[in-house]
Write a protein that binds this DNA or RNA. Structure first.
Lengths: 250, 250
DNA sequence: CGAAGTTATCTATTTATCTAGACAACTTCA
DNA sequence: TGAAGTTGTCTAGATAAATAGATAACTTCG
């Protein structure tokens, strides 16, 4: 097993306890520590990572707060038996418009704002805009009281001039597109990345600053290829898995 | 927002400069800051994140060290790096082939180890193993001198008894499968998540401890659906984004 | 019961990180 | 040329994180 040392750990921008927390979280995620298992004791962790016992305790405390482990005075700390529920969200790869990217049926999305803005150059290009004037819509999605994702949608203001009012009325992008006469649309590309959440994303998703977000960047278009919507969605990585369907070519 | 930021940022386990560094890195990776672009000045960053200018400088210094930006006294700091490269994921995804589709011959994969182990229960179930005895193979993948991904492969030891020797001989999973008589296989399912790298992953990928990995968990099978390989791949998120293949709508 | 091992809590101290202000060196542009 | 704006460097102080040691409360097991 590889342990980081003081040299590489200090000055890394990550506190010692955070690194230990995430290391243990990774072991749980990889099933090397399983439900019910006894975590290394505080003294063992302190020795393994060359830190004080208090630092090891702080690392464990973060896992306790996340519900991954439970501490019992006198006996030890154990991996929680029922792992936190993960939301499996389907990434749309064909025109499953009814469910699609909105995933589980219980998900509710809300429009935070919609403004007319100058689109960034690359987004304007992907949308095929000569003028760069676009409608920008910010949305959030939550299920079961948990904030799951925030989305930034870009529409061509000339192609869909009424999308803003339709959005405010329907509260849903899909319904708003239908109100604008778009019955069918197709996802033409999706790119997935991961990074730390920005401060505003962390606030919207009820995450700590620095939490990890999965970022999907997608382009929706008419079946003939005309681009309709550029969509950037940020998911809280600790609650979400993205499920990719692989439609067989035949 | 700014005062709230300070309060919630502390005690997060991430230093202020690290959060700023990672936010800027994300903007570069997602091509919102492009090669040649002027970074916000130190004073602008300090104001935007409500930190001292020295803290903003430290954030930039980390990007300089990673070779993403270059500072020029008097004029500013500029982006020097390209956005994260794309790794394609689709029906015919092979770890060996899909990276470096720019035709660069620099992409290479390496078999680190192969052992016979008792597979974890969930993996055994997905592979359809009654006996739980499986071959576990660890691989790494790099391109352009960058370590891109590490993979953990699981095979049925009874269905593919010779895969280990074939792997050691060929060095490639695809070639080894072909040597075992598997001419064609397809991706059945892919699930994507993200978390911090463990210390061992960070070492294999030449990342700092605490860096972010994209984790894909995939099942490959014969065209008739028989499971062949369970594959967990960890990509260095700062270098890679996943490009989800969409079937052409024809 | 008693000993050993565990988590919980407290105080004090050291070390690392962040803030504050000043000035120098350099570039850009009017 | 000069003014404004930028990065580079220095000193000092304030705040947060980690260390060190001690003791209590609880569990397990011989």
């Amino acid at each position: 097993m590889t342990e980081f040392e003081l040299g590489s750990r200090s000055n890394s921008g990550y506190s010692a306890w955070r690194l230990i927390t995430e290391e243990l979280r990774g072991e749980i995620a990889e099933n090397r520590l399983r439900a019910g298992d006894h975590l290394p004791t505080e003294n063992m962790l302190a020795e393994r990572y060359s830190v004080n016992r208090h630092t090891a305790r702080q690392a464990i405390a973060a896992l306790v707060e996340d519900g991954l482990v439970e501490s019992q005075r006198g006996s030890g700390t154990f991996v929680t038996s029922e792992p936190a529920r993960l939301h499996q969200i389907g990434l749309r790869t064909r025109l499953t418009r009814s469910l699609g990217d909105d995933g589980s049926a219980s998900a509710s999305s809300r429009v935070l704002s919609s403004t007319i803005e100058e689109a960034p150059e690359d987004i304007a290009r992907r949308l095929g805009l000569p003028h760069r004037k676009a409608i920008r819509v910010e949305t959030t999605r939550s299920t079961g009281g948990l904030h799951i994702a925030v989305g930034t949608h870009w529409f061509d203001v000339e192609r869909l001039p009424d999308i803003a009012t339709a959005l405010r009325r329907t509260g849903s992008v899909t319904a708003a597109l239908r109100a604008c006469g778009i019955e069918d649309y197709v996802r033409t590309s999706t790119v997935v990345g991961a990074r730390h959440a920005t401060a505003s994303e962390a606030e919207l998703l009820s995450l700590r600053p620095g939490a990890i977000v999965l970022v999907t960047e997608a382009l929706d278009g008419l079946p003939d290829g005309t681009p309709l919507q550029h969509l950037v969605t940020r998911f809280a990585a600790q609650h979400v898995r993205l499920d990719i369907e692989h439609p067989s070519a035949d």
